[in-house]
Amino acid sequence: MNGTERIGVYVCHCGTNISHTVDVEAVAKYAAGLPGVALAKEYKYMCSEPGQDMIQEDIKEHDLTRVVVASCSPLMHEVTVRVAVWGAGMNPYVFQMSNIREQCSWVHSDKRAATEKAMRLVHGAVMRVSQHRELFEKEVPVHPDVMVVGAGIAGIEAALR
């Protein structure tokens, strides 16, 4: 870490999916004290439009250089947040998602321990994202032909369409 990063951390309640087991305020507070973290917030639904808007505004207003979202599995919403940060002019690959739902709140019942685990997961994500480099997607052309393997009714239907 070069010490110049300004990281924004967002902890999601996911309704009560996360906040029921994880003290999201405590996690946000903990994150705020981590080196390089410029701001840390918690919010009910980070995937919602207001949640996304909040990230975009913060990036602009607070000049954030990195973003960490602690919420659900990246399979669910990594792309959602990537698009959001990209909309605010940030490279989508200097954002890191921390899974505190499937890998934390959903699988634990001890709120104190789960909260501590969430803090560590977020700490890891913060340290990791500091090391991220900007990455760039590549566009390639698509061949216009389609192959259908199988000629039963499903294959026939697909081919005719």
Partner: peptide, 24 residues
Amino acid sequence: VAQGAAAAAGALVLVDRGKVVLEP
């Protein structure tokens, strides 16, 4: 039949867009 049509639609979206973004 519905899946055949859906799969065709999926393939057509790709072809119609003419290009595809590859993750880095």
